Simulated scan of single mutants.
Amino acid sequence: MREKRRHRAPQQETLVNSIRRVLAALAIGATCAGGTALASDAWPAKPIRIVVPTAAGGTVDIVTRLVAKGLAEDLRQPVIVDNKPSASGLIASREVAHAQPDGYTLLAVANTFVSAPAFVPQAGYDPIKDFEPVTQLCQIPMVLVVNPTVPERSVQALIERAKAHPGEVSFASSGTGSTGYIAAELFSRRAGIKMLSVSYKGNSQALVDVVGGQVMTMFDQVSTSWKYVRGKQLHALAVTTPTRSPLLPEVPTVAESGLPGYEDVTFNAILAPAGTPAPIVSRLHAAIAKVLARPALREQLSAQGIEVKSSETPQAFGEYLRSAASKYRGIAQAQ
């Protein structure tokens, strides 16, 4: 019996060592998983920064600041809005794409975030691969406005002028691929005209120059243009939604003005760098949804022509982004 035990001992020792290695590996894995869970549970432990790729005063800035205020109250940490305007928002988007994916640096976006990479070959980021979708915040109609000195007072009259004088009708936007640029590009294709594009670092300055008469026209969000229209500093020719805007009920849609089927609505949203832990993304989504559900906030935005629209899940918003990216690539390839 002793001889048999001496021969069996090395096999038993090998088996025991193998079991120990497996148990050690499982313990390490559990520790790592636990560490990730603890890090997510501890979030947020310091201020959160939301980078806005547009100038202060625009719709993205307005909506983001309202959401940031509500988030700070709910998460009990300061939420800082950091404006970093540039043409088409490329600089801010690149910065956040390379930020630590820890939930402390976020990006507020509009359609331009998805459309710019389709039109700018070296945008420096991929809107799908480099970011984690969190949620949509709202959607906003756009309006085609002209400086009051422009004699044309209808969409058809403007189209006729552009056809008679190709390149004479100028339009302002915050850069190639921006929301205003895309709306104008879609409009030009439907109408069969060629307009002159004038780019700015931000939508606010573009709007100022249309009001000042340096540029003839632009597609701008109703939320930032309607006060100028009411003050007769701009004349509204048409809105881009299928139905008229409650803020400008007397202004027809582009579709009913002779371009049936035309529609272009902008959205605002929040994203995080790719690799941000799913528990943090989920908590962000839930916290923002809670903020957007507040009646006072919804009424405040509705009064400016902004419709609150929260994504059901981060994954649902991701699908929306992929669909939008495909749409804009198609538009860019057709140029």
Results as ranks from 00 to 15, higher is better:
Q221W: 00
T224F: 00
L71W: 08
G180Q: 12
I62Q: 03
F267W: 15
S197E: 14
P101H: 08
P85C: 09
P151K: 05
I128H: 03
I48G: 10
T266W: 02
F131Q: 02
R153G: 08
V52I: 12
Q139G: 03
V52M: 06
L15G: 04
V254H: 06
S40F: 10
R76S: 15
T217D: 11
S302T: 10
N268Y: 04
P166H: 09
V52W: 01
E160P: 00
R244E: 13
V281Y: 04
M218S: 14
K84Y: 08
L23T: 13
V16K: 10
G213W: 09
P85W: 10
L234K: 06
S225R: 06
Q233V: 01
S115D: 00
G34W: 13
D82G: 04
R298W: 01
S204F: 05
P53C: 09
I306L: 07
Q221V: 01
I80R: 14
T241H: 10
L207M: 13
L301N: 03
Q100L: 14
M142F: 12
K84C: 04
P117T: 06
K4F: 14
R190S: 08
A183R: 11
S225D: 13
V222S: 04
A56W: 01
A269P: 01
V308G: 08
V145M: 11
S178Y: 09
M195E: 03
V81C: 14
S174R: 03
G231A: 15
P249R: 12
R298H: 03
T135W: 02
E319S: 10
A287D: 09
G175L: 12
S188M: 07
G89P: 03
Q333W: 12
T266E: 11
K232L: 11
A278M: 12
D264W: 14
D264C: 04
A278H: 11
P166Q: 10
S310T: 15
Q221F: 00
Y328V: 01
T224R: 04
G29C: 15
P44S: 06
G124S: 06
A39G: 10
S326M: 07
E256N: 03
A110H: 02
L271Y: 00
D130R: 06
K163H: 12
V109T: 15
T241V: 00
G89Y: 06
A334P: 00
L158A: 07
L71E: 07
G213R: 06
V254Y: 07
Q300W: 01
R190M: 13
A296G: 00
F171R: 09
A33K: 05
P148M: 02
S245Q: 06
E132S: 14
N268T: 14
Q100F: 04
M142G: 12
L26A: 14
T64K: 05
A37Y: 13
E13G: 00
V145P: 07
A238N: 09
G192Y: 01
L137C: 05
F267R: 02
Q100E: 15
P314T: 07
V120I: 15
A97H: 14
K4E: 15
G330I: 08
A296K: 09
A172P: 10
A24T: 13
L15I: 02
V291A: 11
G167N: 07
P85H: 10
R294F: 03
E95N: 06
V211S: 08
S178C: 07
G318T: 04
A183G: 08
D264R: 10
P44G: 05
Q304Y: 02
K46D: 12
A184R: 07
